[in-house]
Design a binder for these strands. Structure first.
Lengths: 189, 189
DNA sequence: GCCACCCTACCGACCGGTCGGTATGCTCAC
DNA sequence: GTGAGCATACCGACCGGTCGGTAGGGTGGC
């Protein structure tokens, strides 16, 4: 639960990282945009690096929680896949900046944090994979295309969203989420 | 047709940009890796920036040529989509580093070059879109999911390839290309 | 009631180091 | 001799991070 100043700093950092990239954004730019000073930033964060990590952490935490909640509902595989994709697409559409930073600057994570991150992503990936595989085993889904490729495609689409989704475009996130879920499920029948 | 020195510089730049990112890679690192000197680099390129642009140009030119060639064959929509995806996936798998740089550092392009790039990508996108729309109009494809969303998904998958494809993995590019094409076509039936 | 003491939150000038780019000159093929 | 193809030494701008200091609110002893 970040305080007001902390939040202002993170918000400004997300905006600037998304539009210019991490390295191209100076700490001075961040504090100017957030209307605080360098002292304030280094009071709350040990390094510029920590800002990136905090952005990732907030995003991953919320996505994992969403998926766990949906799986907890115990719906059939088709419904589960639809709900997971829909929630992922809408939440990503609401946070395009965070996701853009996430996708683009991921490799900048240090050794330790990268290990943590990979473990978390692996968990997410395999949870989703298990849903698809169960659907295939039960005969609800076709097995023509291997489950891992399907999962890769589905999650890849979401990561690419920031590249072309525009909040002021014609399609609302909900409509788009429906279309993407339709398409993926069509490929699974 | 770049000369030998020029090529060495570009190769080194691609490798370093892919593993560390553009900003995190210094010009000195590039020339050291390429076993040339700064003088040589600035003899062939006006700025570090130009290296990025050259990497993009080479990639886009070859992809556009591939697509034009395939469409020129005049195959049915289904076959055309399969061929385009297959060639895109295999050529991307062969050039993961270039694609990774492309996806990650695109936003760094200056105003003018960004405009040029957008025009080229738009052309690529709409050519592909036309194929899908024709397939839908002819009744070969279903129209449940709008053509533009399908194209977005298909191209998005390819852009995400560098995130998870490993040349030393179990699946060859050709096998993977087949699976991706199968999946997309399944969603179009 | 009040003052001494402390602590959190924040300020902003400053530093060492790095980076992209340049200026100048050599060398060798034609 | 002359221009393409480099090599080398160097510059000024900027960047992440530090550090001595301050403002103001809480708290306990008397």
């Amino acid at each position: 639960m970040p305080g007001a100043t902390e939040q202002k700093i993170i918000d400004a950092a997300v905006r600037l990282f998304a539009s210019q990239g991490y390295d191209a954004t100076s700490v001075q730019e961040i504090v100017t945009a957030a209307q605080v000073t360098k002292g304030a930033l280094y009071h709350y964060f040990r390094a510029k690096d920590d800002l990136l990590f905090e952005i990732y952490r907030l995003l991953i935490t919320s996505q994992s929680a969403d998926m766990d909640r949906i799986i907890g509902l115990g719906l059939p595989a088709g419904e589960t896949v639809r709900e997971i994709l829909a929630s992922l697409v809408t939440s990503t559409a609401e946070r395009v900046d965070e996701t853009a930073v996430f996708v683009r600057e991921l490799h900048r994570l240090g050794e330790d944090r990268m290990t943590d991150f990979r473990a978390e992503r692996r968990r997410y990936h395999e949870t989703f994979l298990a849903v698809v595989e169960k659907g295939q085993a039960d005969g609800e889904f076709s097995s023509v295309v291997p489950a891992d490729t399907v999962v890769r495609i589905a999650l890849g689409v979401v990561n690419q969203l920031p590249m072309w989704f525009r909040p002021d475009g014609q399609k609302t996130p909900a409509v788009l989420a429906g279309e993407i879920a339709d398409f993926v499920l069509a490929g699974l029948r």
